[in-house]
Design a protein around this nucleic acid. Structure first.
Length: 538
RNA sequence: GGGCCGCUAGCUCAACGGGUAGAGCGUCGGACUUUUAAUCCGCAGGCACCGGGUUCGAGCCCCGGGCGGCCCA
């Protein structure tokens, strides 16, 4: 992300406790303050049906309290889950009734009332199972209580495992306890919640009603879990470094500023963990990684959320070629863990994330796509002429490296579709990367581009303190000329380098973008649970 | 920051050349002992995002604002 303006994601840049006899939800005395809680939250603006429905549901809560029952009992001890039942009893015969008694809890999603029978769909964290309620079996009173449930209510039931004549695995309900009343109606049971804005603002409703939303987040968190365990297996140590930085560093991006009152000190939410992680390599930890949030005070778009999740890792004694191997292994491993395959479709492209990925230098790719030979050793004037010819706009102060990068980004990057390690970025735009062993105006740096978008960024790390100091000084010069994204000078980091940073490779990966890629979704907001939006109601 | 699009019942969506709005789901009432988005019958439910303007009359046309989506910078 050195020198990049768009702030991309890369680095530099119940156990159920079983009581004996008849465990059940524990009712308790109605507390005097309970009635206060029944004041509506914010539905003064609601009219008609919505208000009536909530009033009706609140009345049910009040009726329960009047009857000495707790509509929000403290706990429910379950001994079965939906998925567990399907696994253990999925193969019993249609029409079979077992005497296996289970206690299961979840949210009521569908109710099919049919006279003296009620079928309900109950969903818990593992899946869904049908409830079968027979008036004859449960008695008039128990039946009436279930008949009184609303879609969205949380309940716990006891019952026996059976299968209906049509072959649907069910729990024949013997008793049912309301665990939490839902006061608001769920979205359309078939279409779910479609309004994008409401889906983001009320993600809890999105996740209740949309299978696709749940699928995407299962993928996201499977990816993170897979990466974490893959790195642990490779003896990487997971560490935590500060989120509050006295000097924002490790990337070129505008930071969020905050203030520590006791110290009377401005601090910055980190834009990258890089410099702290490399301090740990100085310390001798050798293989470290961190998965965590970084913050960049930039625009919000399909590809940018002001806070996003980054993986950064560093390994002593290796260079960026090892980082390539590790990057492609991690991505393939994450894809297999999350969706069972490395074949994905993204933005209309069918892609295979199985290693090895193509490796091409940035300069070669620009030659292929833009038809020009560029190199940061060329005179600025020549590169400006090339920009003019290619329709690439630039600032007069830009050096040759920045011009080369700009030409690449405007003409080439978006066209790099298949997973590709783009190698050897200009030194001028890579202030934390080691100079290339064969060409000092380049660095040993790659970005992994997939579908035209950056997924990861890595280097052979710059460990020469004198070189690093001069890079910082150059950044300070840019800052003094008004570049708000220029890298800050971090004297303590330089001091650390003077103790000796062993040769090492480092890599940063945007987890949100990886999740988008593997889940096949086009907006970062689809993979962030609670994306940032402007406040409601202006 | 610019362009285009959207905002109508709790949810999903319609309609019309300007003439104060419809359906499905859900709710409410009724029927129903093997349903699967159950089905069938019936009743309710609307400050059309907000504010101005034009008009006899605006959800629709015009202006301003809000929030969102997509594309571009």
């Amino acid at each position: 992300m050195h020198g990049r303006r768009d702030g991309r994601s890369g680095r530099a840049a119940a156990a159920a406790q079983q009581d004996d006899a008849a465990p059940r939800a524990v009712a308790h005395v109605v507390r005097p303050e309970d009635h206060l809680r029944e004041e509506p939250v914010t539905d003064a603006h609601l009219d008609g049906q919505a208000a009536e429905e909530r009033a009706a549901r609140r009345a049910k809560v009040a009726a329960l309290r009047d009857a000495g029952r707790d509509p929000y009992p403290v706990r429910f001890d379950r001994d079965a889950t939906a998925a567990g039942l399907h696994a253990s009893h999925g193969d019993i015969d249609a029409g079979a009734e077992t005497d296996v008694e289970v206690r299961i809890a979840g949210r009521v999603l569908l109710l099919r009332r049919q006279g003296k029978l009620i079928f309900a769909t109950l969903r818990d964290g593992t899946g869904a199972v049908q409830l079968f309620v027979s008036k004859a079996a449960i008695g008039d009173e128990g039946f009436a209580e279930i008949d009184d449930l609303d879609l969205g209510d949380w309940i716990g039931v006891t019952g026996t495992v059976m299968k209906t004549r049509k072959g649907e695995l069910s729990v024949a309900v013997r008793s049912c306890t309301l665990l939490a009343k839902s006061l608001r109606p769920l979205p359309d049971k078939w279409h779910g919640l479609a309004d994008v804005e409401t889906r983001y603002r009320q993600r809890y409703v999105d996740l209740i009603s949309n299978d696709e939303a749940r699928r995407v987040f299962e993928i996201r968190f499977a990816i993170i879990g897979a990466i974490r365990s893959a790195l642990s297996e490779r003896a990487f140590l997971e560490v935590e470094t500060p989120l509050l930085h006295p000097i924002p560093g490790g990337a070129t991006a505008r930071p969020f500023v905050t203030h520590h009152n006791a110290l009377d000190l401005d601090l910055y939410l980190r834009i990258a963990p890089e410099l702290y992680l490399k301090r740990l390599i100085v310390a001798g930890l050798e293989k470290v990684f961190e998965i965590g949030r970084v913050f960049r005070n930039e625009g919000i778009s399909t590809r940018h959320n002001p806070e996003f999740t980054m993986l950064e890792l560093y390994e002593a004694f290796v260079d960026y070629t090892e980082m390539m191997a590790l990057t492609e292994e991690l991505i393939a491993c994450a894809a297999r863990a999350a969706i069972g395959t490395t074949a994905v479709t993204w933005d209309g492209h069918d892609l295979d994330l199985a290693p090895p990925y193509r490796r091409r230098t940035l300069i070669d790719l620009v030659r292929d796509h833009a038809g020009v030979d560029v190199h940061p050793s060329q005179p600025v004037g020549d590169l400006q002429v090339m920009c003019d010819r290619l329709g690439v706009t630039y600032d007069d102060e830009w050096g040759p490296g920045k011009l080369v990068l700009e030409i690449y980004e405007k003409t080439t990057e978006h066209a790099v579709v298949e997973p590709t390690f783009v190698l050897d970025y200009p030194r001028e735009v890579s202030p934390l990367a080691r100079a290339h062993r064969d060409d000092p105006v380049l660095t040993e740096r790659f970005e992994l581009i997939v579908g035209g978008r950056e997924i990861a960024n890595a280097f052979s790390e710059l460990n020469d303190p004198a070189d690093q100091r001069s890079r910082f000084e150059e950044q300070a010069r840019l800052a003094s000329m008004g570049d708000v994204e220029a890298h800050g000078v971090d004297d303590d980091y330089l001091r650390a380098l003077e103790y000796g940073l062993p040769p090492c490779g480092g890599m940063g990966m945007g987890i949100d973008r990886l999740a988008m890629l593997i889940a096949g979704v086009g907006s970062i907001r689809e993979v962030v649970l609670f994306p940032h939006l402007r406040p409601e109601g202006g």
